[in-house]
Amino acid sequence: MPKAFTPKVITANALQEGDVIYLTRDGAWTRNLSEAEVLTDEADAQIQLLNAEARSSEAVGVYLADVAEGLHGPEPTHFRETFRRTGPSNYFHGKQADL
């Protein structure tokens, strides 16, 4: 049996700044994971992904990232996404400093 579809967000890097971005419900890009739209339907997620990939003048490397729904919006389920949402651990740089 195929694996059950787990909740996802659409994420990428911004073309010009390079920083991590997420897609919101109204189709805008946000720097903040908690504002991202959580996709729970696989077919819907695939269509949204195609649409996001087409926005190549805004975003690079678009993909679906696993999340869990938390009290304050989506939370990463893998440590890689935790770093992407936060920034590096050796300096207070990136999102942890900017947001």
Binding site: N13, L15, Q16, E17, G18, D19, V20, S56, S57, V60, G61, R80, F83, R84, G87, P88, H93, G94, K95
Partner: peptide, 27 residues
């Protein structure tokens, strides 16, 4: 690339030839 005449697939080999990567948080 910025004005949309080049796609990322077209641009990527060009930027790599000039040492420019896209990493986790930034270029």
């Amino acid at each position: 690339r910025v004005d949309g005449s080049l796609t990322e697939d077209e641009f990527k080999p060009l930027r790599l030839m000039n040492g420019l990567y896209l990493q986790l948080h930034a270029y």
